[in-house]
Design a protein around this nucleic acid. Structure first.
Length: 257
DNA sequence: ATGGTGGTCCAACCA
């Protein structure tokens, strides 16, 4: 089974790229973030024609998440436990017996922002949600745009980013507390090229200069990690015409689909 | 150089 995550920064604009990438990479599951579509605008038919069913949680202008698979994901969930939120950032479902949480973690804007406080509260609610989930399921994937670079290897210029949003200690601690529940960053199970990132700012030639961060992650429980054979960032779509500012990340697992 | 680009939607917010 191949499982992937991609922040597309508007599915309306990026649908051609998504369809192209589905053909090229042939994932069994794809989590999308920042679809920026209401549910009524979701391109169900175009994705069905490409062989994918979807569950989705959208809103106008901002956020929006979707989970695509070859068969409709079961037992969908769009909320964190005890965290009422009009922002659509969570789309969980079960595919092939694997419980999959696709997330668009709040960006936080800056460490002195109200949005940063919201981000840390959201992550605390996520921890509670996943703690309960991991009690119930052995095979769990938690993936998406985490808006956190796990450590300095995931940052093009650690000195410049030190203490800043996406790299601050409270954010990294919140991520560590998720991992402590029994999850592993699957990317780091494998040898990786230095300076492998998943997001590059549109501004100042970020991609051309490889000034990026690795903030798009696929976490897995031990049962998933044990069967994981690869986890890679596919930089290619970031170089296409009219790209998202994020590249897709994909992990492959033995057995199943 | 404390900027820049891009999406949404047309002023201003978000990333």
């Amino acid at each position: 089974m191949r499982v992937a995550t991609w922040n597309v920064n508007s599915l309306r604009v990026r649908l051609p790229q998504v369809l192209e990438w589905l053909t090229l990479a042939s994932p069994d599951v794809l989590g999308l973030q920042e679809t920026k579509l209401t549910d009524g605008e979701f391109p169900i038919e175009a994705l069905a024609a490409a062989g994918y069913q979807a569950v989705f949680a959208g809103q106008k202008t901002y956020n929006g998440v979707a989970l695509l698979a070859r068969e409709l994901p079961e037992d969908p969930v769009t909320e964190l436990v005890g965290f009422e939120d009009p922002q659509r950032r969570v789309m969980a479902g079960t595919v092939g017996g694997v419980r999959i949480w696709n997330l668009y973690v709040p960006n936080g804007q800056s460490v002195d922002s109200d949005k940063y406080t919201y981000k840390l509260g959201w992550l605390a609610a996520l921890r509670e949600t996943l703690a309960a989930e991991l009690e119930k399921h052995e095979r769990v994937i938690v993936m998406g745009d985490f808006n956190i670079a796990p450590d300095d290897r995931d940052v093009h210029d650690p000195a410049a980013w030190a203490g800043k949003v996406l790299c601050s200690e409270p954010e990294r601690s919140a991520l560590t507390s998720l991992l402590d529940l029994g999850l592993e960053d699957l990317f780091r199970r494998f040898d990786q090229a230095e300076d492998t990132f998943s997001w590059w700012d549109y501004r100042a030639g970020g991609f051309r200069r490889n000034h990026g961060l690795r903030i798009d992650l696929i976490l897995g429980t031990a049962a998933m990690a044990d069967t994981c054979t690869t986890c890679v960032v596919d930089r290619a779509p970031r170089a296409w015409e009219r790209p998202s500012d994020h590249a897709p990340v994909m992990a492959e697992f033995e057995g199943g689909a």
